[in-house]
Amino acid sequence: MGAMTVRDIQVTFDCGDPGALAGFWAHVLGYVLQPPPAEFDTWEDALAAMQVPPERWNDASALIDPDGRRPGVFFQRVPEGKTAKNRVHLDVRAAEGLDGAERMAALERECTRLVALGATRLERHEAISLLQGGHIVMADPEGNEFCLD
């Protein structure tokens, strides 16, 4: 077996409104919208120059980590809505280094902030052990589950 190659990844969401969902996740993650190609001031200018019809301008949106260390997040429009539980979900680290009541208080504060942005609180789970701390299950505005952890 040869040497393993480490690869960058991008997380992709199928969704109904890429622009709106990208805006939500930008606030959750502290990411920014991917800038348009260097020769354009706005995505609208770029898409018009690429002759993309205006009704297709919200077919996709992308976020990047402003520090360039974490994976990109891509949102693509699909015709069908979400119908079942996610098989893969994001764990948003909102209480790193904390445990017990302090951890859960930090998660509750972040939960409150995200509900104000359009998320839905689904379930709170108390800590089971040192290896499995408490967490809060939430859903983004299109129903995709994620955890505050």
Results as ranks from 00 to 15, higher is better:
residue 49 A to N: 14
residue 29 L to A: 03
residue 118 G to A: 12
residue 100 G to P: 00
residue 30 G to A: 10
residue 76 Q to V: 08
residue 12 T to A: 12
residue 93 R to P: 00
residue 84 A to P: 00
residue 80 E to D: 14
residue 14 D to G: 08
residue 92 V to Y: 02
residue 106 A to R: 09
residue 79 P to D: 14
residue 88 V to D: 00
residue 50 M to D: 12
residue 38 A to L: 13
residue 9 I to Y: 11
residue 103 R to K: 03
residue 53 P to Q: 10
residue 13 F to S: 03
residue 10 Q to S: 14
residue 71 P to C: 10
residue 121 R to D: 04
residue 88 V to I: 15
residue 81 G to C: 03
residue 115 V to A: 03
residue 73 V to C: 03
residue 116 A to C: 04
residue 53 P to W: 14
residue 72 G to M: 08
residue 51 Q to F: 14
residue 111 C to D: 11
residue 22 A to K: 02
residue 35 P to T: 08
residue 72 G to H: 09
residue 63 L to P: 01
residue 116 A to H: 01
residue 103 R to T: 02
residue 61 S to H: 12
residue 42 T to F: 09
residue 109 R to D: 15
residue 96 E to Q: 13
residue 92 V to N: 01
residue 13 F to V: 03
residue 80 E to C: 00
residue 119 A to W: 02
residue 69 R to H: 13
residue 42 T to M: 08
residue 87 R to A: 15
residue 50 M to Q: 13
residue 69 R to W: 09
residue 64 I to H: 08
residue 58 N to Y: 06
residue 59 D to K: 05
residue 26 A to W: 01
residue 46 A to N: 10
residue 102 E to H: 05
residue 15 C to A: 06
residue 42 T to A: 07
residue 46 A to G: 00
residue 74 F to G: 05
residue 60 A to D: 07
residue 96 E to R: 13
residue 60 A to Y: 07
residue 85 K to V: 02
residue 57 W to E: 04
residue 117 L to C: 04
residue 59 D to I: 06
residue 61 S to E: 09
residue 18 P to H: 08
residue 88 V to A: 08
residue 47 L to P: 04
residue 114 L to V: 04
residue 15 C to H: 01
residue 11 V to E: 00
residue 89 H to S: 10
residue 37 P to A: 14
residue 58 N to Q: 11
residue 120 T to C: 05
residue 106 A to Q: 04
residue 73 V to G: 00
residue 14 D to E: 12
residue 77 R to L: 06
residue 62 A to Y: 07
residue 110 E to W: 11
residue 14 D to I: 01
residue 13 F to A: 03
residue 121 R to T: 11
residue 109 R to H: 13
residue 94 A to K: 05
residue 61 S to A: 15
residue 14 D to H: 06
residue 65 D to V: 09
residue 113 R to A: 11
residue 65 D to W: 03
residue 102 E to I: 00
residue 115 V to R: 02
residue 75 F to N: 05
residue 16 G to M: 03
residue 70 R to G: 11
residue 35 P to Q: 06
residue 112 T to Q: 13
residue 71 P to D: 12
residue 78 V to K: 00
residue 45 D to Q: 14
residue 26 A to M: 01
residue 111 C to S: 15
residue 54 P to I: 06
residue 94 A to G: 12
residue 46 A to S: 13
residue 44 E to T: 13
residue 42 T to W: 08
residue 19 G to Y: 01
residue 89 H to G: 06
residue 113 R to W: 13
residue 55 E to Y: 10
residue 80 E to L: 00
residue 43 W to A: 08
residue 52 V to F: 05
residue 120 T to V: 15
residue 88 V to M: 04
residue 67 D to L: 00
residue 45 D to S: 09
residue 84 A to V: 07
residue 73 V to L: 05
residue 24 F to H: 00
residue 100 G to K: 11
residue 63 L to G: 01
residue 63 L to N: 02
residue 93 R to E: 14
residue 64 I to L: 12
residue 117 L to F: 02
residue 79 P to W: 15
residue 32 V to L: 08
residue 56 R to N: 14
residue 121 R to I: 03
residue 10 Q to H: 07
residue 103 R to P: 06
residue 116 A to D: 04
residue 72 G to C: 09
residue 97 G to M: 05
residue 14 D to V: 02
residue 85 K to S: 12
residue 107 L to E: 10
residue 113 R to S: 09
residue 70 R to L: 11
residue 116 A to E: 06
residue 77 R to V: 02
residue 98 L to H: 05
residue 24 F to E: 00
residue 114 L to P: 00
residue 48 A to H: 14
residue 30 G to I: 11
residue 86 N to H: 04
residue 59 D to G: 13
residue 69 R to M: 13
